[in-house]
Design a protein around this nucleic acid. Structure first.
Lengths: 336, 336
DNA sequence: TTGTATGCGTTATCAC
DNA sequence: GTGATAACGCATACAA
């Protein structure tokens, strides 16, 4: 592994390092054709490749941004990541992805690591638990954009969806189909989007003059959800409809239904948050609350780039995207 | 965004930069307790964070490795990525993921970009098209591991599955169920694993004295597969069983079945490569050929780390992992 | 148009 | 035990 530097190229070409540097940065305003040719040849012969580390040190800009994702196994994270990557690829910026697993410790470690690596900015799916750290970054004017979750009281650009309204719409849809016993199933409410969905669920029930049954707010870790479902469905008046908080929750509900041989939508109607790849193709097809993940990723990427380039004087704000209810076969009229 | 350097800490603590550096690198063999305390305080007060870029420049080691993934929307890529990340996280190495989209141009660009960023090594799902570039890296003794695909003639550690045998097993399973008209559906055969699967398919048919019908080898881009399926199934003797090359192909087959109102497995049996999250929970549940993606990721990560640390004198070789046929409800006895 | 000198923040070498 | 100083590879004033 030989390392050839800009100095070697300069020697070979018989010019100085700065001339080569000019050439590399395409500043050939006043450069002689002949010099250019010589440098090109030298680079070719030596197999020279610039060292971005050295360049970054000098320029104080790495052309890298860090993305701290909630959980790469979530569909939403994957889709958002993909669109962020596509955006930055066009701008010759490198997006570095980290998986915080919704774990505040990991999140903290990654934020510190990425900043130590001098990435130019950060897009974070915040756990919401590292307030002091968030605050420090924002106070230092370090470019940050939050994704998918709200952290109250911090002046930071945030890209999110209208969770409350979307859940209300889902509940209204179920109510209009005659459902009265509607349950919501979600992972622990440590994250703002999950809280907002439960909030919207409650509000919608009240707006429809339905009582809120605490047993129908099923909140637990993924691995424990199936037991909660079994318990809830063993009651005398089980839910006739379920709203699943995300794609992973959906799998648990499907697992439960299969195990108990409950047929959807006869046994219960089902609506799921997130874009489910197979929603259209299974029987029954699955009603979803789709999130515009690609637009969200693009927006966040663009916001961060603006901050990095100091191209905007806008004060930070929330950017709310609308979810879309895609009605399919899994949500039907209540069967008595 | 104030930057506080090791020099500021040294001033504040009333010691020299080198002493601080010693401290940071935990080389306090002979360091006075008092000095230690002073430095700690200074770091705390100033909010100092080391600059890894400068360190990397000096040390010629970035503690970053690059992972060039086939397509982040593939389940296999996601799973392998996840296990690679987990492995390196334990070793305080940062894995950087890039999405080559199976596009040789993008692959080339990413390889060059990552090497310019001085990553310590590369794990690649190779497109197989950039032979010269692969060769250059290997000749330079740059640490590289290939994943999932075989590139013949290059001395490089490669982690793969036994595609031929796995496909043969799938075919044998179908044959044992009475199927004679078995089709295989896959994306274009530009990638070794896809070729090997078709190879295994052919061999298994021959071994079972079945004729190979070229119309039953359905090869096309994802978006065109559905038309090919329609054509194949409009023939007088359509397949009674399908083998899908991966998760994305599966979705197209499900789309096709839904559109044509063909019920699986009555209309045709179905076997899919890849770990399908919902395979168990839909009706019918789906027979899969599972790949040990987590073990594969871990193996590749460990191999690369060995190379980086020059910890092994083993010549490069292929590491073949076994797939597992998970028989479920989508593959049943042929119905006449 | 090209060359020289300097600095980016860190670590390594060697004095002291 | 600690400190000066020279690299690491590149970019940028400024000089020529």
């Amino acid at each position: 592994m030989v390392k050839v530097t800009i100095g070697d190229v300069a020697n070979k070409a018989g010019v100085s390092k700065s001339t080569v540097s000019q050439f590399l940065n395409k500043r050939y305003r006043y450069m002689g054709e002949e010099t250019k040719k010589k440098i090109e040849d030298a680079i070719e012969k030596l197999g020279y490749h610039p060292n971005y580390v050295a360049r970054s040190l000098k320029q104080k800009r790495t052309s890298m941004v860090g993305i701290i994702v909630a959980n790469i196994m979530h569909r939403l994270s994957t889709e958002v990541s993909r669109s962020i990557e596509d955006f930055y690829h066009k701008h010759d910026i490198h997006a570095i992805f980290c998986n915080a697993d919704n774990d505040p410790e990991k999140e903290k470690k990654y934020i510190e690591m990425l900043r130590a690596k001098q990435v130019d900015g950060l897009i974070i799916f915040p756990t919401g638990q590292n307030i002091a750290l968030y605050k420090e970054m924002i106070d230092e004017n370090y470019p940050v954009v939050f994704m998918d979750r709200r952290v109250p009281g911090l002046p930071v650009n945030s890209v999110m969806v209208n969770n409350e309204e979307a859940t209300q719409e889902a509940v209204n849809h179920l109510v209009s189909l005659g459902h009265k016993r509607i349950a919501i199933v979600t992972q622990p409410l440590v994250i703002s989007s999950r809280k907002e969905r439960v909030e919207g669920y409650k509000k919608a029930l009240q707006a429809n003059s339905l009582t809120i049954n605490p047993n129908f707010i099923i909140v637990n870790e993924i691995r424990d959800l199936i037991n909660d479902l079994k318990r809830t469905f063993s009651e005398s008046e089980p839910p006739t409809a379920l709203i699943a908080g995300n794609d992973l929750v959906l799998l648990e509900i499907l697992r439960f239904a299969k195990e108990k041989q409950l047929r959807i939508p006869d046994a219960f109607s089902l609506i799921v948050f997130d874009n489910i790849s197979f929603a259209d193709f299974v029987s029954p097809s699955i009603t979803t609350i789709g999130q515009p993940s690609f637009e969200m990723g693009e927006k966040a990427a663009a916001l961060l780039l603006e901050q990095i380039n100091k191209a905007s004087d806008e004060p930070p704000k929330d950017f709310l995207f609308k979810c879309q209810l895609n009605v399919r076969e899994s949500s039907i009229k209540r069967i008595e």
